[in-house]
Computed example of a mutant assay.
Amino acid sequence: MNKWKLMKLAICLLVIVSLMLESRLVVTAEPPSSYSAPPLVSEDEELQEILQSSLSIVEIDKEIERIQARQLILQEQLIDTELRLYEREMDIEQKREQAGKVLVAYYKGERIDLYLSLLKSRNLEQFLFSFEMIEYILSKDREVLDLFIKEQRDLQSLYEQFAAENEQLLYAEQELQQQRERVLTLEKQIDDQLSGRTDAERVELLIKQLTQFWEQQGIAHVEAYFEALAYAMNELPGWLQKNSQYLSYKGFNYTITLPEEVLNQYLQDYDPMFRYFEFDFKEDSITARGKKEDIDIEISGHYSIVEEPSNYIQFTIDELYFNGFSLPDSTKQELAQRFDLNFYPSLLVKFLRARSVAVTENELSIELKLAF
């Protein structure tokens, strides 16, 4: 009996061990990641151009989707405005008729008769009654005319709104056509270049790897850097208030002098992400570079002053590189719209306005003035 129990126990142990080994084999036999390490800048200039064009197509396609979505919204707004215009035009016809009757009454002198009734009053009570009636009629006249004028202004405002929305829609359609033409041109260029290569299949695989890596990891890292930079720039005025050694003033004039290494230290203290990121100041330009593992990002741009509608210092992205590949204008514009990298003097001191901004070797200088 004991032998049978021992045999059953041994069999159970063997089954458990075999199951464990099988499960371990299944885990270790998982397929590799859907993409390998991303292609980097190649010494093969044609290959580099093909990969660059393929990445541009991906981003331009996204811009086309954004434009199409904006078109739908504009079309809905246009239909709504057109419907409101029709309703307003119907309403104003009635107001125009009422206003016309009032103006005719004044033109024919009918309202003078009202004033004459005051002279015909036989006693004070009749005089006051006539006066109240005149005041009531004149107030109603004013209401009719004021309402007509308001309706006219509202109608004009709707016409202007309709025209602006229609212009935006036409611009979006032109922009969409331009982007589609860009995609077709790039696709034809890639097809022509691939047709002349003996390694076309390998290049197509590299295109796929680059596209997958950009969509699955690259864009998320770029957006993360932009988001962190936007928050850091928004809080820079508050940091300058606490670190007044970089801020000097004389009368109503203020000067911010920010060395390159100070800004880099501020960013590193602000967010650990910037340990892998560095600003480099050159004459009239700023370059920010960051590299971590398989992600290499470079942003180049310049500062300029915007006066209206509110005074601030705008950062314009001139170049944006991902792993050595230049991203198209549509991507730069979309990132600039989503993430605010500008500097607002009024956050430093109320009523401060930027007068000039200059970037020299290793230093950023901003001239400001109080404007009441």
Rank of each mutant, 00 (worst) to 15 (best):
A10Y: 10
I16R: 06
V17R: 03
L19P: 02
S23L: 14
P32Y: 00
S33D: 13
S36Q: 15
S42D: 12
E45P: 00
Q48A: 06
I60G: 00
D61N: 12
E65C: 01
Q68G: 00
Q75T: 10
D80A: 14
T81S: 10
Y86F: 14
E87G: 05
E97S: 11
E97M: 10
Q98H: 09
V102A: 08
L103M: 13
Y106T: 02
G109H: 08
D113E: 11
L116R: 08
L116M: 12
L119W: 02
L119P: 02
E125T: 14
F129L: 12
S130L: 03
F131I: 00
E132L: 06
S139M: 06
K140Q: 15
R142W: 09
L145S: 05
E151Q: 11
E151F: 05
R153V: 13
Q156G: 07
Q156E: 15
S157W: 10
L158N: 03
L158K: 08
Q161L: 13
A163F: 10
E165Y: 06
N166A: 05
L170F: 06
A172E: 10
Q174K: 08
L176T: 00
Q177D: 03
T185R: 10
E187T: 06
L194E: 03
L206T: 00
Q212D: 13
W214F: 14
Q216P: 05
G218T: 10
I219F: 11
H221N: 11
V222C: 04
E223G: 03
F226W: 09
E227A: 11
L236K: 07
P237W: 03
P237C: 05
P237G: 08
W239S: 03
L240P: 04
N243C: 01
N243R: 07
Q245T: 09
Y246I: 01
S248G: 00
F252Q: 15
I256F: 01
I256L: 12
V262G: 02
Q265H: 11
L267K: 06
L267I: 05
D269N: 12
R275D: 15
F279A: 12
K282Q: 15
K282R: 12
D284K: 09
I286K: 07
I286L: 13
A288L: 13
A288E: 01
A288P: 02
K291Q: 15
D294W: 13
D296T: 05
S300D: 04
S304P: 00
V306E: 14
E307M: 08
E307K: 15
S310P: 01
S310K: 14
I317Q: 10
E319P: 03
L320P: 04
F322V: 04
G324T: 03
L327S: 04
A336F: 03
A336L: 08
D340M: 07
D340I: 08
S356V: 02
A358G: 09
E361I: 04
E363Q: 11
A371T: 09
